[in-house]
Design a protein around this nucleic acid. Structure first.
Lengths: 135, 135
DNA sequence: GTCCGTGCAAAGGATTTGCATAATC
DNA sequence: GATTATGCAAATCCTTTGCACGGAC
């Protein structure tokens, strides 16, 4: 994920876009809110507005560079789209997010959609619970 | 679901609460937003404020009379909690919501959580797609 | 009569938008 | 140099809260 990905997406290579991409790549927990990213920028001494963060993230989403998730927290979180679909385990205490894939669940979802006559475009499965560290 | 359910929940039996319960029971699509409910009240000539709708829905949620869902639309939707857990198929064109249960998926989720060391408290699975009528 | 519930208006948080300026290509 | 991006502030959407009044028990 680098500057040429931006060009490919038809986006000019600008400082805010590069920085936001970097932050998403280097984040320990890869699932960040717009506010998280903004804070991170401010800490690095960058002079980038929150509105720009939102604009860039929305553009990245449209360009399929990032995926937006709505965990049940009242705000969106974003992660780089590395192409590998996965679902999420979210800790309701500390906010930790783990990823998982279960082929059986994936295929059953397809089957459920088909049976209902839906043409499935997407799905989101979030398991909420208390992680090992918080128990 | 009636007035005695309200009393059981420790809530006084008031007109707004009764009306909102009725609307949730009679809704064709049982998944309504606060705004939907408010509009429905206004149409029936009730003089009930939107703030009250939100307050009542939040109380109902705490009392386990309704369940709140966050489909990816920027607002919450509410449905009566009839005790039967289910997941949702959401049409991205018309907003139609269908319910389903798949035991295999349910049990796999438990297994996934257990393997990750999570104590699962809840989960939400939404399949997004285009319904039969919209295709 | 006490306490809880409600309406209204104002506040709140997350996100978007308008506009003049500044940067990329 | 033309076009697209950005920063800032103001606006918007959904939801919550403060306060004085009204209703349930």
């Amino acid at each position: 994920m680098n500057n040429s990905d931006l060009k490919k997406a038809g986006l000019k290579v600008t400082l805010p876009r590069i920085k936001i991409l970097e932050i998403l790549e280097n984040a320990r927990d890869r699932h960040l809110s717009a506010e998280d990213i903004y804070k991170s920028l401010v800490e690095s001494g960058e002079d980038i507005g929150l509105a720009t963060v939102y604009r860039v993230l929305t553009q990245f989403e449209e360009a399929k560079l990032v995926v937006r998730h709505h965990f049940s927290e009242g705000h969106s979180v974003f992660e780089l789209d590395l192409g590998a679909h996965h679902d999420h385990l979210v800790c309701v205490k500390c906010g930790l997010v783990e990823e998982f894939v279960d082929e059986l669940i994936e295929s059953r979802q397809q089957a459920v959609a088909k049976k209902a006559g839906f043409c499935m475009t997407d799905h989101s499965l979030n398991i909420y619970g208390i992680c090992k560290g918080c128990q």
